[in-house]
Simulated assay, not measured.
Amino acid sequence: MSTTQSKQSLKSFLYDLIWLSVSSILCALAVNWIFIFTGLAPGGITGMAIILSTVTGISVSTMTLCISIPLLLLSFLVLGKSFGVKTIFVIFMNPLMMAVIPKIDIFESIPVLGNIGGLFLGAILGGILVGMAVGLALNHEGATGGTDVIALLIHHFLKKIKVQNILFALDGIVVILSGFISGELFVAIFSLVSLLVINRVITWCTNKKLTVKEA
């Protein structure tokens, strides 16, 4: 590879990292402004870890590591070194952004919404934010470090199935099982609504190739 090609490759890689940082900010906004106050949990690795922790008795943090580490190794081996590095970057950026962005209950000043109204609006807004976050990550050949990594690994072997459809199925299973375990019916229902929004926004982002071209 020539020096010019190397510089272009590095520039493209750094450019992707910038947009993956934006993806992490969007995820953090969804969590810190919506999900932690509404209790909505549209799937993800954390949801999987909670379910497996309930079944096995192993702590959630340990179970999260047990799921995440093999996924990272597989992403390096199957999806390539660049993808693996980007995924590790996002895994570190997500908690950093969640620590930096203040926790604000954006529905607190709208008491007229009530519990159901708050869950519905939270499902829509949270779904849009997470959908854009995942869509941006996919457009820049990365992942948010959650079930989207599993979806990409499955898509690698089953090309005919769209990533967003695999992701919806995986997270849907997690949400349904979480609803059974917690007994929170309305939270489970609106988490599924949020999943539907996420799925549609990811489809829109990837079809439109939602990104900003390099200068």
Rank of each mutant, 00 (worst) to 15 (best):
C205Y: 12
S178I: 06
I88C: 13
T206V: 14
I34S: 02
S194C: 05
G39M: 00
T203W: 13
L96N: 09
S61Y: 06
L195M: 07
K208S: 15
I69S: 10
E141L: 09
L170M: 12
E141H: 11
I161E: 06
A133Q: 06
G114C: 14
Y15Q: 08
G146F: 02
N32I: 07
L10Y: 07
A169F: 12
H156T: 13
V60A: 09
L40M: 07
F190V: 06
G131D: 02
G122T: 02
F190L: 08
G135L: 14
V78D: 10
A151L: 14
N115W: 14
S109T: 12
I176T: 11
L10P: 09
M98P: 09
F83T: 09
A49S: 15
W33K: 02
L121I: 11
I150F: 06
L14S: 13
F107N: 06
V55R: 00
S194M: 03
S9Q: 03
I198K: 00
S68W: 01
C27P: 00
M93K: 02
S24D: 11
K103W: 07
T4P: 04
T144N: 07
T211M: 14
T56G: 05
G114F: 11
H155M: 13
T62E: 11
H140N: 04
L152T: 12
F180A: 05
Q164K: 09
G135S: 13
I150V: 06
V55M: 03
A28G: 11
T147N: 06
I104A: 04
C205M: 12
L158V: 15
S53P: 06
A123T: 00
T38V: 02
L20R: 03
K103M: 08
A41E: 07
G126I: 01
L196A: 12
F37M: 02
D148Y: 06
S75L: 07
I58F: 08
I166C: 13
Q5E: 14
A49V: 14
S178N: 01
L195N: 08
G39H: 03
V163N: 04
A30P: 05
P70F: 03
K213I: 04
I110M: 14
S82A: 06
P95H: 01
I166N: 09
D148C: 12
A28H: 03
V149S: 08
S53E: 08
D16G: 06
P42T: 02
I36W: 09
L72H: 03
A28Y: 11
K208H: 15
V149W: 03
V174I: 13
F37N: 07
S53Y: 04
F83P: 07
S23G: 10
G172R: 02
S194L: 04
F107M: 10
L185P: 04
L52W: 04
L20W: 00
G57I: 05
F92G: 15
L136T: 15
D16K: 03
T64F: 14
I161T: 10
P95G: 01
W33Q: 13
V175I: 15
W19T: 06
I202S: 07
L170V: 13
D171Q: 01
I128P: 00
G135W: 15
A49L: 15
L185K: 11
N165E: 07
L121N: 10
P70V: 10
S53Q: 09
G122K: 05
C205K: 11
F76S: 07
V175Y: 02
G57N: 06
I166S: 07
M97E: 10
G127D: 01
I189D: 05
C27H: 03
G131Q: 00
H156P: 12
V90Y: 02
T38P: 04
G114E: 10
